[in-house]
């Protein structure tokens, strides 16, 4: 580690846009990701937040942790509300001489993004609204007690996909949200992880500059739902990236860039064995996961390499 980078945390603004006293579980990685996103977004932001952990923990009525304009929407319409706000701002500019540059941001968990709110997100991206969609992916419906979503990884045990004699937990593979967003041919799609604050902030800053929709998918470690100690949040996120389970990449105008390209990936066991939700997996399951992970990772790597060749 270069000596200077040790002091890098000092480069980040100390201004917070979410207040302390929020009700997240101890060791929450999702609220950390949201903190970095908001630091990068700054003051001139309007946030439309779908139902989910981040909504529940930040606004226990009559209190709010937010220090930027924020609206609570339902699971299914965070992007629709963001579209409306963006159109409203446009109208204000056109008719009433409003000049401030305000970025509209929609946020949601993996359930609100990949399951329930996918239609409104797809619609908003297709219409080309000038907004950023941030998905905090903690890989299940955590705030209601760990129910499976379409982002729950293969083999994970959840309360609605429990492991036992008849089942090994979740038996489907994750939905590739970044690819779905990219298929809308929007200008900017990125994936990031709660353990990499600078990566998140750089990507959000890039997205702010885009005129039109952009999509950022952030893997957010959930110690409660993943059944791991609350102090392992940062480590777990790093392992997800270092094992290749969660490749961090950007798609700018269709061009892939792999942000962290490791010469050698760690075996997936390093990641799986530390989490209670994967405790029941046997060698065959792990091998199957390893194969799939390498497959997906190499796919992204090939796409990124293709760009370089051009």
């Amino acid at each position: 580690m270069e000596t200077l980078s040790i002091y890098a945390p000092k480069l980040i603004t100390s201004r917070e846009y979410i207040a302390s006293g929020h009700r997240a579980c101890s060791g929450c990685g999702e609220v950390l990701a949201m903190r970095y996103v908001c630091k990068a977004l700054g003051r001139n932001t309007i946030i439309s937040n779908a139902t989910g952990c981040m909504e529940i923990i930040s606004t226990p009525l009559p209190q709010t942790a937010w220090e930027v304009p924020w609206i609570h929407t339902l699971f299914e319409n965070a992007s629709a509300v963001a579209s409306g706000i963006e159109c409203g701002l446009k109208a204000l500019k056109r008719k009433h001489g409003y000049t401030r540059e305000v970025k509209v941001v929609a946020m949601g968990g993996d359930g609100a993004t990949a399951d329930i709110g996918l239609q409104s997100l797809s619609g908003a991206m297709e219409r080309g609204h000038d907004f950023i969609y941030v998905c905090y992916d903690n890989e299940a419906y955590m705030n209601t007690g760990i129910q499976r979503s379409s982002e729950t990884p293969f083999g994970a045990s959840t309360t609605t996909a429990p492991s036992g004699k008849a089942s090994m937990g979740q038996h489907t593979w994750q939905k590739n949200m970044a690819a779905i967003a990219a298929a809308h041919e929007i200008q900017y799609v990125a994936t990031s992880c709660s353990s990499y604050p600078f990566d998140i902030m750089t990507k959000v800053e890039k997205a702010i500059k885009i005129k039109g929709p952009s999509y950022i998918h952030i893997l957010s470690v959930c110690p409660t739902g993943w059944r791991c100690p609350s102090n392992s949040t940062i480590k777990m996120g790093r392992l997800a990236v270092e094992t290749g389970i969660f490749p961090m990449y950007e798609i700018e105008n269709g061009k892939y860039t792999l942000n962290i390209d490791l010469p050698k990936l760690r075996p997936v066991e390093d990641y799986l064995k530390l989490q209670g939700r994967f405790r029941h997996l046997d060698k065959d399951n792990t091998a199957e996961i390893q194969e799939k992970v390498l497959d997906e990772y190499n796919k992204v790597k090939r796409l990124a390499a293709g760009n370089k060749a051009k």
Partner: peptide, 22 residues
């Protein structure tokens, strides 16, 4: 209390979770 909020559940006191001891 929630019942003291204005119509539309608008919280005007920004960042008031700071009062809450976690």
């Amino acid at each position: 209390k929630w019942s003291e909020l204005p119509v539309g559940c608008v919280v005007t006191d920004v960042g008031n979770t700071k009062q809450f001891c976690t």
